[in-house]
């Protein structure tokens, strides 16, 4: 009896093409993505009294601390914008980025137990992290809008402008970059746990190397290339420009992170895909 090759709906082989991303499979499991997001949202704040209010408190206090430390004590210029808004804009963006990056970089090691028992497209996990963090970002973003409105009503010099239309794109860029990076690190930590330690303080250091606490205009020329190499610098600068009307806007601030995101995503997915097949033997 000869079987025709096309009869098989599933073929499991040792190696497959690097670019065989099985996006069809990911789409078939889209309900799982939704379930993961719901789970993350429900389970985190169960048995807490304040619940989602914690989403507000953390960025609020960070902003106040930054305002006092960097604005008042260190006296770093915010380019004429109310410091509270300036820092809050940076922190809201950075929080989303770092939360996604830290969580996705733990994909394989943190889920080894479930990955070892059941198959589903592993890409679902980082995707679900990025999506569930968008909800948290949304809450913090609302807080930012409330303050923005307050400053606008009291007549401060903030001018939201047409570039607000770029904000959704900025969010996508942050999601893609953090996910891409996170997947690469996650793939590598399956063998070399050292990276897990690196990511913890690496993310913190990277914040100081971005425009979270200072505007682009304040960066000394000799450090500028280095700091602008961090794609988050441009993204935060554009974000601030759109909402506050402060700083400068160059098209390279959008072009650079876009290219960066595209490259890191492709790299990330390829590495992730490759490791996905073997990690259970090495984790």
């Amino acid at each position: 009896m000869k079987e025709k090759e096309e009869d098989w709906t599933l073929v499991i082989e040792p190696k497959s093409s690097l670019f065989d991303l099985q996006l069809k499979e990911v789409w078939r499991y889209r309900d799982l993505l939704i379930m993961f997001v719901t789970r993350d949202f429900i389970s985190v704040y169960k048995q807490t009294i304040l619940g989602p209010i914690w989403f507000f408190l953390q960025p609020l206090f960070t902003t106040i601390t930054f305002t006092i430390v960097f604005g008042r004590i260190a006296g770093i210029s915010t380019g004429g914008v109310p410091p509270l808004l300036f820092y809050m804009a940076g922190i809201t963006c950075w929080n989303y980025f770092s939360a996604c990056l830290t969580a996705t970089s733990n994909t394989f090691v943190g889920n080894a137990n479930i990955f070892g028992k059941v198959y589903f497209p592993r890409l679902i996990t980082p995707l679900s992290i990025v999506v569930s963090n968008i909800l948290k970002f949304g809450v913090q973003f609302l807080l930012f809008l409330v303050f923005l409105l307050y400053y606008m009503v009291t007549g401060d010099s903030v001018q939201p402008n047409i570039y607000l239309l770029l904000v959704p794109f900025l969010i996508i860029l942050m999601a893609v970059i953090s996910m891409g990076f996170g997947m690469i690190i996650s793939a590598m930590t399956t063998r070399y746990r050292d990276l897990h330690f690196l990511i913890g303080f690496g993310v913190q250091l990277a914040m100081y190397g971005s425009t979270v606490i200072y505007p682009v205009s304040e960066i000394p020329e000799k450090y500028k290339t280095f700091i602008m190499a961090n794609p988050m610098s441009s993204i935060i600068e554009v974000f601030r420009f759109a909402f506050l009307g402060s700083g400068t806007l160059q098209w390279s601030y959008i072009a650079y992170p876009t290219v960066f995101a595209a490259v890191i995503l492709v790299l990330g997915v390829i590495v992730f895909n490759k490791v996905e097949k073997t990690f259970i033997d090495t984790v």
């Binding site: 599933l10 073929v11 499991i12 789970r39 990955f115 073997t278």
Partner: peptide, 29 residues
């Protein structure tokens, strides 16, 4: 869950596996 080193498996239809009961159960839910 793991990949073969050599060889192939061919199947017709969806494969669902039950290597453990209650994989991914979340206590809080």
């Amino acid at each position: 869950v793991a990949s073969p080193t050599i060889g192939t498996i061919k199947a017709k239809g969806r494969i669902a596996s039950l290597l453990e009961v209650g994989t991914g159960f979340n206590n809080e839910l």
